[in-house]
């Protein structure tokens, strides 16, 4: 699953650590999601999308 978290982070001028704190997860989790090594749960995916005030499809794209 591809994602645009890095782009949205840059748009909000936010570090991985900052986003992790806002979402209540570890920095390593944000890093793993951005690198595509870990697919977040629906709950976390929605939290990320809501934090950036966009739809989930704008952040995550399903596919290999």
């Amino acid at each position: 699953m591809k994602n645009r978290i890095k782009v949205f982070r840059a748009m909000h001028d936010l570090t991985q650590e900052g986003l992790a704190k806002e979402l209540g997860v570890t920095r390593q989790t944000i890093l793993a999601i951005e690198k595509g090594k870990y697919d977040p749960s629906l709950d976390l995916a929605f939290k990320i999308a809501r934090y950036f005030e966009v739809t989930i499809e704008e952040v995550f794209t399903y596919g290999e």
């Binding site: 997860v25 570890t26 989790t29 870990y38 749960s41």
Partner: peptide
Amino acid sequence: GGRDERVEL
């Protein structure tokens, strides 16, 4: 302090 769903997995 650093426990989340990925750590649980």
